[in-house]
Design a protein around this nucleic acid. Structure first.
Length: 495
DNA sequence: TGAAATGTTGGGGCG
DNA sequence: ACGCCCCAACATTTC
């Protein structure tokens, strides 16, 4: 009877990286409160480090568009859009509307944690109730502990510990009703935020490749379950096949939760038997790597800026913008590397196997600082995610937790021949060498003149000669690594 | 979630 | 027939 008194003070439901209605604990809490709800998204224009990159902004625009439509259709609630320093915007809105409570789902980036902690204290100080919920992770970073009570620095024991915890709860569906707050509020228009590229509009490839939003995420998951899961363990390494889930950007923006994925997989395994089982295990472990990245970032907040292994701070990087730029533009002369970089530029995404290859190439063959690579990925990936990006780059560089040892240097030719054996992937993204026979598709510079001529390819003109020699670059990288070790030994000896 | 260098073995060509 | 050498093919070690 008293549940929806018009005079009841409102609850602010603050959307952040949880742009969905289903399995959204903050939204469920808002519904359960019975209070009128103000749905808010704040564009953070005050952020200094790690402001959203171009590809992410494109995605955000469409995801907010979808969320706004869903809120309106389902609940008759408008998504209020404001920009500025989120702390100030939320505080001001709470005062403006005499809000009784503010609810949100947690973010785990160090700056967001600090901000939310301050905001929570300030709101409570003014007698406003706050609620923060977990919508983004299977397990909270502080929940997973070693025997000794510390945090994990190695993946396998981390994931084992996760699996020993109670399974994540079954994700609830979106609540039936939310009570709208009827007083009109000034809102920005989404188009005013300039999130979409213009002059030039480089987003054509993104539009072809993606459907941002909760419905798009659900469709993507269903497609993966139907088409790719049963051969995931093998197929996931093949960039020439559509064998991965491509859920990463949806996960980043919270259009789907890892809990929803976990349970969808579980249902599939229960009905599908063993062939699904081992593949599902492999896929769940990928969710595990995501959890591990968040675990690392939470407990080592400098992860995006600083090498996890201290000795790596002394690594003799070869700071040469020309090399970095050739890598960014996909003009290294190594087809598998260039294909990956061009896929990234065109679609805002790159196959995971190829990410490892291009990252290894930048850090080891070109000896450019992993932070340069991380910054480029940050700007160009639609799934750019601070925890995943920092942890993964450090993993490849060898500077991270449980990282690949530095001497593990991918051979871009062998990797290409192994995982893109017929060259389909390379031909798609590096069309100028498409006419080369399979034998030379991953090493055009070894093709005899006759073959080059028949393929209509002038090496060094139509397609670059290799930027560096593989064997020489490999040896140089190993030497640089050795110098790091010697420095450490010397320092220890001197100390 | 590598690759290259080095070591070992065994079949077969050949004098 | 026998020993020698060559060199795949595979295993181990090293970076």
């Amino acid at each position: 009877m008293a549940a929806s008194l018009p005079a009841s003070r409102p609850l602010i439901l603050w959307f952040r990286q949880d742009l969905r209605l289903n399995d959204n604990p903050a939204l469920s809490a808002a519904a359960a409160s019975g209070r009128p709800v103000i749905a808010l998204y704040v564009l953070d224009t005050a952020m200094r480090d790690w402001a959203m990159g171009g590809a992410s902004r494109w995605w955000l625009h469409h995801s907010l568009d979808q969320l706004g439509a869903a809120l309106r259709q389902r609940y008759g609630i408008a998504l209020l859009l404001r920009r500025g320093d989120p702390e100030a915007v939320v505080t001001a809105l709470a005062q403006e509307t005499d809000a009784r409570a503010v609810h949100w789902n947690r973010c785990y980036e160090p700056a967001a944690v600090a901000r939310d902690t301050r905001l929570k204290a300030a709101l409570q100080e003014s007698g406003i109730e706050t609620g923060s919920h977990n919508a983004a992770l299977l397990f909270e970073p502080w929940q997973v502990k070693t025997q000794a009570g510390g945090w994990f620095k190695v993946f396998s024991p981390f994931w084992r510990a996760c699996r020993a915890l109670p399974e994540p709860a079954t994700p609830p569906r979106a609540p039936q009703t939310l009570t709208p707050w009827l007083r009109p509020l000034a809102s920005d228009a989404l188009t005013d935020w300039g999130l979409l590229p213009h002059r030039p509009d480089w987003a054509g490839g993104l539009r072809e490749a993606w459907t941002p939003g909760e419905a798009g995420a659900a469709a993507r998951l269903q497609d993966f379950l139907d088409e790719a899961l049963t051969s995931y363990a093998q197929g996931r390494d093949r960039p020439d096949r559509a064998a991965t889930s491509k859920l990463s950007p949806h996960l980043h923006f919270g259009e789907i939760s890892p809990r929803q994925i976990w349970h969808a997989i579980r249902m599939k395994v229960d009905t599908g038997g063993l062939t699904v089982g081992s593949n599902a295990e492999k896929f769940l472990a990928e969710l595990g790597w995501r959890e591990f990245s968040y675990h690392l970032l939470y407990h080592f907040p400098a992860l995006p800026q600083r090498s996890f292994r201290d000795d790596f701070e002394a690594f003799p990087w070869d700071n040469r913008p020309r090399l970095l730029q050739a890598w960014q533009q996909g003009r290294t002369g190594y087809p598998i590397v260039d294909a990956g970089m061009r896929e990234l530029w065109h679609t805002g995404w790159m196959h995971n196997r190829v990410r490892m290859i291009v990252a290894s190439f930048l850090v080891k063959h070109l000896r450019q600082d992993w932070r340069q690579g991380a910054a480029w990925f940050w700007d160009t990936l639609v799934d750019a995610d601070l925890a995943n990006n920092a942890a993964s780059w450090q993993w490849v560089a060898g500077s991270g937790a449980d990282a690949a040892p530095y001497f593990r240097i991918f051979n871009p030719i062998l990797q290409g021949e192994k995982f893109d054996s017929r060259g389909d992937y390379v031909r798609r993204w590096v069309p100028e060498i498409a006419a080369l026979p399979d034998k030379y598709i991953h090493k055009p510079w070894l093709a005899p003149d006759k073959v080059l001529a028949e393929s209509g390819l002038r090496l060094g003109r139509d397609y670059p000669a290799p930027l560096v020699d593989h064997d020489g670059a490999r040896k140089a990288a190993l030497a640089a690594f050795a110098s790091l070790r010697d420095d450490a030994r010397e320092a220890a000896g001197a100390g």
